[in-house]
């Protein structure tokens, strides 16, 4: 019950945040260089045509009126129509969202799979060669941009060796895992480096904690000490980091989706920006804001289940 109350309270507190986000989105979008009417009708359209398009999009209304319409429609769940896709923005986004969600979770899953065990190996061998090797490799991963790694993977593993598809998105779960493998690896290389670094130092710190020494003094088997006493405590800070870096993760996804031609919301965002598709840009940005807030909330909830000292208030 306390948890439910806490969630409701947090959702309520999100309202002012979203209002602020809407103001920022609205202003930013209007300052994008270029004219949406030209983007729609093309360079050679007549002035009259452009004027008609502007009228239809409501771009001739005063700014405040446009904003008012934006806010009231959004509250009713209406994000307008995408100029580019000629369909309701909500529909366009909801069609594309699962792909991105899949890719993001896939990348996070891969990152944990890669970083978790390696962080343990590095931490338990602190200062010796396995630690040095692991840290060096991840440092390289950290300093290479996702875009660049994506292109390399694409060129070698997909285009030349033809082990993986060059783009697209499968129909079945298995096909999706296969299609999205390279894109997730591209994202995971960066994310796993961050997780590895954080988890490694967290494990090292926890290993020296008095309660771990006490657990050893109790004569517990080593796997229990590592799994129950060390990992759980070390995970708290890593989960927080992972939650807080959701923004980074999503911008990584945006680049990856573009490089690998994955039809997700990241690529949609780029398309929308190029097309000056105001409603779609607004809708997408708002969606990102909602996602980030929800992930933050989930992070806090997860933390409080892990750590009894974190009371929900």
């Amino acid at each position: 019950m306390a948890t439910l109350q806490y969630i409701l309270k947090r959702l309520f507190l999100m309202i002012p945040t979203f209002f602020l986000v809407m103001i920022i989105i609205f202003v930013l979008v209007r300052f994008l260089p270029g004219d949406p009417a030209i983007a729609i009708a093309g360079d050679r359209a007549s002035d009259a045509d452009l004027e008609a398009i502007r009228e239809r999009l409501g771009l001739n209304e005063p700014m405040l009126v446009q904003f008012w319409l934006f806010v009231t429609n959004t509250i009713q769940g209406d994000l307008g129509s995408s100029i580019l896709m000629r369909a309701p923005v909500t529909e366009v986004i909801f069609n594309r969202l699962p792909t991105t969600a899949f890719l993001t979770l896939y990348a996070v899953g891969l990152s944990l799979l890669i970083a978790g065990p390696l962080a343990f190996v590095a931490a338990l061998n602190r200062g010796r060669w396995p630690d040095v090797l692991i840290r060096t490799v991840f440092q390289v991963g950290l300093s290479m941009p996702v875009f660049y790694i994506g292109l390399i993977l694409l060129t070698f593993l997909a285009a030349q060796l033809r082990w993986f598809p060059v783009g697209g998105y499968g129909d079945t779960f298995g096909a999706r895992l296969y299609h999205l493998f390279l894109p997730s690896v591209a994202v995971a290389l960066y994310t796993s480096a961050i997780i590895m670094r954080n988890l490694r130092s967290a494990i090292i710190e926890v290993l020296d904690a008095e309660y771990v020494q006490f657990a050893r003094a109790k004569g517990l088997p080593n796997r229990l000490i590592l799994g129950r006493h060390v990992l759980r405590n070390a995970l708290i800070s890593t989960v927080t980091l992972l939650g807080l870096s959701i923004g980074n993760l999503m911008s990584g996804t945006l680049v990856t989706e573009t490089v690998f031609a994955v039809p997700g919301v990241g690529r949609l965002m780029l398309e929308a920006i190029f097309a000056r598709d105001y409603p779609l840009i607004q809708g997408l940005t708002l969606t990102f804001a909602v996602l980030v807030s929800v992930v933050f909330l989930l992070t806090d909830l997860f933390q409080s289940t892990l750590d009894p000292r974190m009371r929900l208030t």
Binding site: E210, Y211, V212, F214, N233, L306, D307
Partner: peptide, 8 residues
């Protein structure tokens, strides 16, 4: 104060 595991 520090010798018991806070999470268990």
């Amino acid at each position: 104060m520090t010798s018991l595991n806070p999470l268990l």
